Computed example of a mutant assay.
Amino acid sequence: MAFLHRVVNGGGTLEREYALGTGRMDLCLRYGQVVLGIELKVWRQGRPDPLQAGLAQLDSYLARLGEETGWLVIFDRRSGIPPIEERTTTERVTTPDGRRVTVVRG
């Protein structure tokens, strides 16, 4: 949150559920010439890993924004998994249309 406060206090904007015509991206952060599209997903018990669906969704949002990079954050809410400090990871992946996305899992 402190990072987001600094961006907004420094002249940036943070828009929730940013409408793009094909749906609503969860967060759109703008700071100067930088635009970050951020999609949030929850991995629930008994459900499949939301990675592929999240990447496809974010891919279409980034295309509408004209951006080549974005962030996908996956909150793991399944039972019986290690504490968040042990399971939090980041990795860089490529969307179906070749955009670069940083995936944060926790």
Rank of each mutant, 00 (worst) to 15 (best):
D26S: 01
L58V: 01
P50A: 08
S60Q: 13
W43D: 06
K41D: 04
V35H: 07
R24V: 02
P50T: 06
Y31K: 03
I74A: 11
L40I: 15
A63E: 15
P48F: 10
A53M: 08
W71S: 07
K41Y: 06
F75Y: 15
D76C: 06
T69A: 01
L55E: 12
D76E: 08
S60I: 10
P50W: 08
G80M: 09
G46S: 07
W43P: 02
G32F: 06
L51H: 04
E67M: 06
M25Q: 09
F75S: 09
L40M: 15
R64G: 01
Q52S: 13
L72G: 03
S79R: 15
L62G: 00
D26N: 10
V42Y: 11
I74D: 08
R47S: 10
S79W: 12
D49I: 09
V73A: 14
L29W: 11
L27Y: 13
R78A: 09
Q52R: 14
L29F: 08
W43C: 05
Q52H: 14
V73Y: 13
G66E: 05
D59K: 05
I74K: 12
E67L: 05
R78W: 08
Q57Y: 04
Q33P: 02
L36Y: 03
V73F: 15
I74P: 04
V35R: 15
D59M: 05
P50H: 10
A63V: 05
R77M: 09
V73M: 14
L36D: 04
C28D: 00
R24M: 02
G66C: 04
R44I: 04
E39V: 03
R24S: 05
V73C: 14
V42Q: 10
G37I: 00
C28L: 15
A56H: 10
L65Y: 14
F75I: 10
V35M: 11
D49A: 08
L65D: 12
S60A: 11
R44M: 13
